[in-house]
C-alpha cells in the first residue's frame, strides 16, 4: 500500500510539475543553439505563476470562453492518467487506449471552443487550423497505437508495452508513433494552430491572466502525455527484460529510465524545433495524409503478422 502511495505521489509530481521544467530545458537548449544566454530553466514556472495570479480580461460573456481552459486542462490530465508510470498506472482498464485518443481529441475540442467563442478572425482561423490539424493527425496516432495493440493483442496502454513481440512492422509503428506524437504536440514546424507571427497564438489570442495560464499549463501537460506514451512504449519493453517491473525497486528503476529517456527526447525535440520553420496548414495536412496512408500499409503488414 505504502509503495502505491509513493508511486502515486511521484506520478502527481511528474504530471503537474515536470512539464514546465521540460519547457524551460527546451528553451535553454534552443538558446544554446542560438548562441544566447537564455532564460533560467525555471522561467516557465515563473511565467505560469505570474499568469495564474492575474485576473483575466474577458472579451465575451460566453461561458464557453471561460470554461474552455479548464476542459483543456482536465482532458490533458485525463490523458496522463491512463499511462504507466513505472509499474503504476493510475487508472487502468481494458480499452483505455480509446480513452486516451478521446481525451486528446477533447483537448483540441476545447481549443476550438475557445477559438470559436469569440468573434475574432484570428481565433477563428486558429480554431479552424486546430480542427484541420487534429483531423489529419488523430488517425495517424490511432493507426500507430493500433499496430501496437495488434502486435501485443491488448487494448490497454499499460498492457501493450509489456506484451509486444519484436517484428519489422513494430519498428515502422515506432516511427509512426514518433511522428504522430510530434505533430500532435504542436512542436515547430507544426505549431500552426498557435502560429504567433501569423495569427497571434490563434485560439489563445483573446485569453489573458489565469485563463491563459491554465491553457498554457494544459498544453504542456498534453505534450507530456504524448511524449510519456512514446517513452513508455520505448522503455517498458526493454526494462521488462532487465528488471521485474512489478516489484517496488523494479518499478522505480523503470520510472527513472522513463524520465531519463523523456529528458533526452525533449532535448532532441528542442533541436529539431530550433532547426525548422513553421509549415503552412495545407503543407502539413498533405504531409499528414501521406503518413496516414503509409500507416495503413504498416497496419496491413502488422495484420499479416510480420
Amino acid at each position: 500500500m505504502m509503495e502505491k502511495i509513493i508511486f502515486a505521489l511521484i506520478t502527481v509530481m511528474i504530471i503537474f510539475l515536470l512539464p514546465p521544467l521540460l519547457d524551460g530545458i527546451s528553451r535553454k537548449v534552443k538558446a544554446k543553439i542560438q548562441y544566447r544566454v537564455g532564460a533560467s530553466i525555471f522561467q516557465t514556472y515563473y511565467d505560469l505563476q505570474s499568469l495564474l495570479n492575474m485576473e483575466p480580461i474577458l472579451p465575451t460573456e460566453r461561458l464557453a470562453f471561460r470554461i474552455a481552459p479548464y476542459i483543456a486542462f482536465a482532458s490533458a490530465l485525463a490523458a496522463t492518467l491512463v499511462l504507466p508510470f513505472g509499474s503504476f498506472v493510475p487508472v487502468a482498464f481494458t480499452g483505455d487506449f480509446f480513452v486516451f485518443l478521446y481525451v486528446l481529441a477533447m483537448f483540441s475540442v476545447a481549443m476550438m471552443i475557445a477559438g470559436f467563442s469569440v468573434n475574432n478572425s484570428y481565433t477563428n482561423a486558429g480554431a479552424n487550423r486546430e480542427m484541420m490539424l487534429i483531423l489529419s493527425i488523430e488517425p495517424v496516432l490511432g493507426v500507430a497505437i493500433g499496430v501496437f495493440a495488434l502486435n501485443a493483442h491488448s487494448l490497454s496502454i499499460g498492457g501493450i508495452p509489456l506484451n509486444i513481440t519484436f517484428t519489422p512492422s513494430l519498428i515502422l509503428a515506432y516511427v509512426l508513433l514518433a511522428y504522430a506524437v510530434y505533430v500532435e504536440g504542436g512542436f515547430i514546424p507544426f505549431d500552426i494552430a498557435e502560429a504567433e507571427t501569423e495569427i497571434l497564438e490563434g485560439p489563445l489570442c483573446e485569453y489573458s491572466g489565469r485563463l491563459l495560464g491554465m491553457f498554457k499549463w494544459a498544453m504542456l501537460i498534453k505534450r507530456l502525455a504524448l511524449l510519456w506514451l512514446f517513452v513508455s512504449f520505448l522503455v517498458l519493453p526493454i526494462m521488462k527484460n532487465i528488471v521485474d517491473i512489478t516489484t517496488f525497486t523494479g518499478g522505480l528503476a523503470t520510472l527513472v529510465a522513463q524520465l531519463v529517456v523523456l529528458f533526452i527526447i525533449y532535448g532532441i525535440i528542442a533541436i529539431i524545433e530550433a532547426s525548422n520553420a513553421r509549415l503552412r496548414i495545407d503543407q502539413a495536412i498533405r504531409q499528414n495524409t501521406k503518413v496516414f496512408f503509409a500507416g495503413l500499409v504498416v497496419l496491413l503488414i502488422a495484420a499479416l503478422g510480420w
Binding site: 538558446a31 544554446k32 548562441y35 544566447r36 544566454v37 537564455g38
Partner: peptide, 8 residues
C-alpha cells in the same frame, strides 16, 4: 559561447 550579455 553565448554572445548575449546579462545586461542590465
Amino acid at each position: 559561447m553565448p554572445v548575449t550579455l546579462r545586461y542590465p
